[in-house]
Design a protein around this nucleic acid. Sequence first.
DNA 1: TATTGTTATACTCTATAACTATA
DNA 2: TATAGTTATAGAGTATAACAATA
Lengths: 172, 172
Amino acid sequence: MPPRDKDAPIHQVAPEATETGPVDGLILEERLGYALRRAQLRVFKHFDEVMREHDIRPAQFSALVIIEGHPGVTQSSLAQTLAIDPPRVVNLVNTLEARGLALRVRCKRDRRSYGIFLTRAGEALVVRLKALSEQSDLAATQALSETERRQLLGLLRRIYSPQASDEPGSNE
Amino acid sequence: MPPRDKDAPIHQVAPEATETGPVDGLILEERLGYALRRAQLRVFKHFDEVMREHDIRPAQFSALVIIEGHPGVTQSSLAQTLAIDPPRVVNLVNTLEARGLALRVRCKRDRRSYGIFLTRAGEALVVRLKALSEQSDLAATQALSETERRQLLGLLRRIYSPQASDEPGSNE
DNA sequence: TATTGTTATACTCTATAACTATA
DNA sequence: TATAGTTATAGAGTATAACAATA
């Protein structure tokens, strides 16, 4: 396409490279989405490092914890809880089942659905993973005090579930 | 590998589906990574809605704001600032250039690199986008007061740039 | 007819290696 | 040889439509 009139550069500044190293993003750092993404990348990096030896991804960890807390949970229930789509749950459970960590049991009442259970290996692993993930959280938030960490969790929770923000035990 | 002994299900609970609706993830909600991801999804959803009419993605917005604040910034500098890889910057700038929002100017001193500048159209758009993104942030954090919002930004900043957490002008 | 799970597909995001042109 | 940018490619993650079995 031919260049248009509006494509002309702004010559208030000499048309020359001015910055060769990292620059500041002060205006950007006032944006919540930017700050959330950067913080999440940092926390997930720690998580990945800690989970590498077990080859566990964030979604797999979440699924294992949910299944542990709710033995016999159905796939559609998992999908709703993890806020992911049914096809992803299929793949997720396939992986866990192939690795001998979880298994599907046909539901007798409603033979369309399965109950998902942890195997003994899955039970043992999730205990270890929970400890590791706690470690990873602490490592990623070394700069924060325990009070600030809980403050942060509370604020985040009020963003992603605005209506359920007054949970018991969260006023310290 | 052949199925192992540990693959056997745990029969402390009847092997039957138990949960058909969404379940709670209380243990999960204590995890920072989980809370960050859920909050980010929520905030990005608002961002997408607000930016849809301009067809602007988060990374494009960030790039436009950085270029506006640093006319003539190089691509490698952009990559460092946005914490993304050089190949992504190429694609990013290609898109912005194709849409007539930014353009590359060959650097005379070092003819390997470009300075990136906004066009007049880009200048006009970024002003509008900054206002929209502020709107979107407010909509996504209706549950928070202005004080809490700034508190959250401060905590997030201390996670993703732990050493630069004592910036000027952040004590109000 | 509606729902659970599944398959297939595609599109975005992200990371890596290898190339070019300059230095 | 080192660096800035580019190309090609592949792997995740995510979303949608369409299908099978069951209700």
